[in-house]
Design a protein around this nucleic acid. Sequence first.
DNA 1: GTTATAGTTGAAGTAAACTTGAAGTCAAGC
DNA 2: GCTTGACTTCAAGTTTACTTCAACTATAAC
Lengths: 158, 158
Amino acid sequence: MKTTDLLNVSDVAHRSGFAPSALRFYEREGLIGATRTTGNQRRYERNVLRRLAFVRAAQNVGLSLDEIAAALSTLPDGRTPTRADWTRLSRTWRSRLDEQIAALSKLRDGLDSCIGCGCLSLKKCAISNPGDVAATDGPGANYLPRRLRVNVQRTPAR
Amino acid sequence: MKTTDLLNVSDVAHRSGFAPSALRFYEREGLIGATRTTGNQRRYERNVLRRLAFVRAAQNVGLSLDEIAAALSTLPDGRTPTRADWTRLSRTWRSRLDEQIAALSKLRDGLDSCIGCGCLSLKKCAISNPGDVAATDGPGANYLPRRLRVNVQRTPAR
DNA sequence: GTTATAGTTGAAGTAAACTTGAAGTCAAGC
DNA sequence: GCTTGACTTCAAGTTTACTTCAACTATAAC
């Protein structure tokens, strides 16, 4: 239990690509934890980097922070998560990704035929109405990531 | 120019799958237009359905409303858009979709190797760091749709 | 010891894409 | 001709995922 290899905020920010404000936000939301120095500054354990890698990865797969938090909460409390723990969490993404890819491919194929016909019919067009992929609104394929997050500090708003 | 086949709000809502509030919002944003009755109620031309189909389709491809509005504004003012007009608008989506699919496939392939290794390394993992697809932040592949919109009235918040 | 740099908090702001509510008006069927 | 349901406006609220600000406080280097 070396105290020496704890990371401070800017270390973690630089190495994870998340802004310090995002790290604080994630801590408030329970996605990551931190210990404090006597002067109340955050110090992070090394494995926070792995957690953050998971966060970014999960965002790329289209999970919301709530879902990510739920997934992370299934990690063991006492010990540092093992490779197997992470693998278990990641495994569910596979089907999610498959569904997303299928949905987009369907859209693209539909587009190819639509470009031929120019229809954009509300009822028939696969693009405007990717029915069988998305119309089932039970747990299924009705998600796609908002935007592929880049592993780079976001440019600040305005 | 029959006045008889104008559609009212609830017709358009049902046939397009957009909520009336969304239709009003889109009108404010300039995506669609409407004439008014003497009593100030909206009446929509039939081709609004096609515009709305375009909106939904474009959302599925990941365009923001601003982008969609810009695209729609290139349609001819005077005449009803032809098939060729719509085709022209749709054509740009193809590459966009290709990029999205490529990005997700990369993610999935990375996941396959990550599940083998359990790494989730910030530097190396293709999932948490889908570098070459997304790291270029010029005009390129840094977008994915938020969520595959379903052609169904959304369940209201809370 | 001092100073520059880095870190702390809580509240408020941002952006997109809509929805909700209140308070009132229109249209259609009986 | 009146009631009922549909429609109107405008302002404000919602959600997600953060960022920004102001006013302080720590830490590290010298």
